[in-house]
Design a protein around this nucleic acid. Structure first.
Lengths: 197, 197
DNA sequence: GGCGGCAGTTAACAGTGGTAAGCATTGTTG
DNA sequence: CAACAATGCTTACCACTGTTAACTGCCGCC
């Protein structure tokens, strides 16, 4: 018995939504095609009509995550002062990771093998989130508060520091004597220090 | 037909060795209990006689990795000058990660859930690798080249930066215009800059 | 009316981690 | 030496995974 769906690709939308819910609710390890199918109310194989395989579905979730992160970064990127803006961006990045652990894992902590298949055009889209940081660095160089060779390299360096901070906090591997918030402040402060003139 | 083993727990040793080989050769994703059993030449369930479950076996591998990393760090930690020593330690850390991707993944990139069960005493043992960095920082503060509040916090901050660098390089997510080696130099330079007086 | 293709189904395959029950061999004890 | 218990390992399962093949029913089109 097949419940008729309003329009052709509504199931695709439903699969994405339920996947997102399951991902956030039960974590990446508990995200299986059959569970998604049960939540959506279709058979597991129907998912393969809309996504080539599990990875393709996950890539779509990465897309959603990148979009969400981008929104947060745009919101944080308001201050005219480059240093303050970069600090706000850094905090927003880490905050996003801590607030959306499942998304963060899917976006940045998946195995390289899986990422290889991540379509190039989507990868480019994800780069916007780096460019926001690079712009703040460029502005800072123009106004003389930052000194660095390349904003692109600088943004990547900052990203590696922020990613290390976020991922180790998420993994609860940071067993430091001070509170998490204070540690985040210290780490971000340290990272920004390296750019200052 | 059961091949008699020389002594009681030789199988445990064989399981660890084959697991390590398989881990390095085929990667974490392809490391299954049955494959290990086939390589060792025993049944899959025999592994459960020596390790509570898959996670316990992996914890033992983490131990081996921590030990190896420790050896590398000790080798790198020779320079009397704290800044040079810390730089060498940072490079050794990243080098270890890039040279031993499978170990690095198992040691630092596994899911938090798995880490929860990671025995505390082993976690303490892993902390030695942080303390080596903290000592260099302490020495640097004493000789006036570094300024920081706490060597412990400082070592953790440095670690987050190094981990972000290593893990993103391993995931091949760093798409920067310069060569990897130059990027590593830049990132480590940036991280050390934040400690300088 | 017939027909093609689309969107979904069920059945099955090969693999996974993990458990239960059983079977030798070995060491200990009366 | 004989009886017993424990150790180390086995086979046979269970429930689950991602994925494919083959099938069915329904829609619009000629």
């Amino acid at each position: 018995m097949v419940e008729a769906r309003p329009n052709g690709t509504a199931l695709r939308r439903a699969i994405l939504d339920e996947s997102r819910h399951l991902l956030v609710a039960e974590g990446y390890d508990n995200l299986s095609m059959r569970k998604i199918a049960r939540a959506v109310g279709c058979s597991a194989t129907s998912i393969y009509l809309h996504f080539d395989n599990r990875d393709a579905l996950i890539h779509a979730l990465i897309d959603e995550g990148m979009e969400r992160l981008h929104e947060q970064l745009v919101v944080a990127s308001v201050d005219a002062d480059p240093l303050e803006r970069l600090k706000a961006l850094a905090h927003a990045y880490v905050r996003f990771g801590l607030d959306n652990p499942e998304y963060y894992q899917v976006m940045f902590q998946l195995h390289p093998e899986r990422m290889e298949r991540y379509p190039v055009e989507k990868f480019r889209r994800a780069r916007r989130n780096l460019e926001i940081h690079a712009e703040a660095l460029t502005d800072g160089v123009a106004s003389g508060v930052f000194v660095l060779e390349s904003p692109d390299t600088g943004a990547h360096v900052l990203w590696t520091a922020l990613h290390g901070l976020s991922s180790l906090l998420l993994a609860e591997r940071v067993d430091v004597k001070i509170a998490d918030e204070a540690f985040i402040d210290a780490a971000i402060q340290h990272a920004l220090e390296g750019f200052k003139a």
